[in-house]
Amino acid sequence: MASINLNGRIHELGAPDDMPLLWAIRDVLGFTGTKFGCGMGLCGSCTMHMNGSPIRSCLTPISAAHGKKIITIEGIGEDSVGKHVQDAWVKKGVPQCGYCQPGQVMSATALLKSNSDPNDQEIENAMVGNICRCGTYNRIKKAIHNASDKIKEGSK
């Protein structure tokens, strides 16, 4: 039986190895924080971290996660950068419907973990794969800058 390391815990998975992580984690394990938006790697709603890098879980089979650490929106608040991002999202009132936001938070956290002080261009490059049909992009940018400020304050 396959197993995955999800948010720091090992879960046994009775599912075929080619099942995308998105469905394995949502349907089989029952963690519904990660969202389905397109199933083709086009929208970013399903973004998770695999060994710290953002992945589109709708296209990533279980087999690709063997021996890797998966973090989802349910676990990202344990990370100090992830927590700053979530706080900034609330502070700036980013969500409208909110459906894309778990994916946006995961992409933004991955960005800030590799670059704690991104400029607007770097933010656009990192976030271009995440669609928000409600159109919260301008607030997302502001929230990323806000989280960046907090991260920099914290590391002083």
Binding site: T32, G33, I73
Partner: peptide, 28 residues
């Protein structure tokens, strides 16, 4: 001012949307 009853849940994956309702033994 920015006041929301839902945003804290939403940004931590706890917002409950249509596909997030689950039951044991459910079908898809």
């Amino acid at each position: 001012q920015t006041l929301s009853v839902d945003n804290t849940n939403i940004v931590s994956g706890k917002g409950m949307y249509g596909a997030d309702i689950r039951f044991d033994d459910m079908l898809y």
